[in-house]
Amino acid sequence: MLLIPNCVKINHFFLTSSHHSNHMGPGNDTQISRFLLLVLSNDPDLQPLIFGLFLSMYLITVCGNLLIILAVSSDSHLHTPMYFFLANLSFLDICVISTIIPKMLVNIQTQKNVISYPGCISQTYFSTLFAGWDDFLLAVMAYDRFVAICHPLHYTVIMIPHLCGLLVLVSWIMRVLNSLLQSLMLLQLSFCSEVEIPHFFCELHQMIQIACSDTFLNDTVLYVSTMLLAGGPLARILYSYSKIISSIHRISSAQGKYKAFSTCASHLSVVSLFYCTVLGVYLSSAATQSSHASAVASVMYTVVTPMVNPFNYSLRNRDIKGALIRFSRRAAIKGTLVLVVKK
Rank of each mutant, 00 (worst) to 15 (best):
S18I: 13
T277Y: 02
Y258P: 01
Q109P: 00
F261N: 08
L238C: 11
I160E: 15
C63E: 04
L324T: 07
I333M: 06
P198I: 09
I248L: 00
N113H: 11
A295F: 08
M57R: 04
S21F: 13
L3R: 15
Y125P: 00
C150G: 10
F311P: 09
P5G: 12
I97Q: 08
C63P: 00
A331G: 04
L229P: 02
A71S: 04
S98A: 13
T226G: 09
L137Q: 14
A323H: 03
R318S: 15
M57Y: 05
F85R: 02
G165T: 07
R145S: 13
F91R: 10
H199A: 13
C63K: 05
R145W: 07
S284V: 06
L222P: 00
V170F: 12
S298Y: 03
N113R: 08
A331Y: 04
M141A: 10
A71F: 01
T305W: 09
T226K: 04
V340N: 11
S213T: 14
Q209A: 11
S242E: 00
C95K: 09
L315P: 07
V340S: 12
C202L: 12
T61N: 10
N65W: 02
M141N: 03
V296L: 15
T61E: 06
L315D: 09
Q182C: 05
G165F: 07
F91Q: 10
I50W: 04
S90T: 02
L15F: 13
L2G: 08
M141H: 01
P48V: 07
A254N: 14
